[in-house]
């Protein structure tokens, strides 16, 4: 049963890194497409475009962080071996879900917002400050999900 518990914890870590990373990849891709469109017309906007394209990438980092934290918790990253029963494994799996789900959807949503803001700076480069704030609002919910995942992981007793 210990093995099943470990496997459930590993599944949680994999979902956190996989889904949040996928959301970021899609989001960065969407923003990148928009950025390429703008830079075809005005290569001088590379710096602004890169900044906005990078914003949806943070969800992937949050997912990776949660995944590390989860496997560290069950002792898969060195340290003393920890005995993990099925319920504890399930607990780790559920704790990873907030960042997995919110990371995936917010990554895509942030990519779309970034793309729209990239289009905005194409016409109004002087509004770059506002263009960064709008996608950053989406980031809030990824941060909240990360926070909840970490709190939940911390609350699981082994």
């Amino acid at each position: 049963m210990d093995q099943l518990g470990i496997m459930l914890a590993v599944l949680g870590a994999a979902l956190a890194a996989g889904f949040a990373g996928s959301g970021s990849a899609i989001g960065v891709g969407i923003a990148g497409e928009s950025g390429a469109g703008i830079m075809t017309e005005d290569p001088g906007k590379f710096g602004l475009v890169l900044l906005l394209q990078a914003l949806p990438g943070t969800q992937g980092i949050y997912g990776l962080l949660t995944a590390f934290f989860a496997i560290l918790k069950v002792g898969l990253l060195g340290g003393d071996a920890v005995s993990v029963n099925v319920w504890q494994g399930l607990g780790v799996l559920f704790a990873c879900l907030p960042i997995a789900i919110a990371g995936y959807y917010s990554g895509i949503a942030q990519g779309k917002t970034s793309a729209a803001c990239i289009q905005m700076i194409a016409k109004r480069p002087e509004e770059t400050g506002k263009a960064v704030i709008l996608p950053a609002m989406v980031e809030t919910y990824a941060v909240l999900a990360l926070l909840m995942s970490i709190i939940l992981l911390n609350s699981i007793q082994f």
Binding site: A36, I38, E41, A115, I118, A122
Partner: peptide, 20 residues
């Protein structure tokens, strides 16, 4: 998430062209 983003590049490029 059903919104199509196929025109992301196209619309951005057109935004750039609108400056002309």
């Amino acid at each position: 998430m059903t919104c199509s983003v196929d025109y992301g590049y196209t619309v951005s490029r057109l935004r750039g062209m609108e400056n002309r």
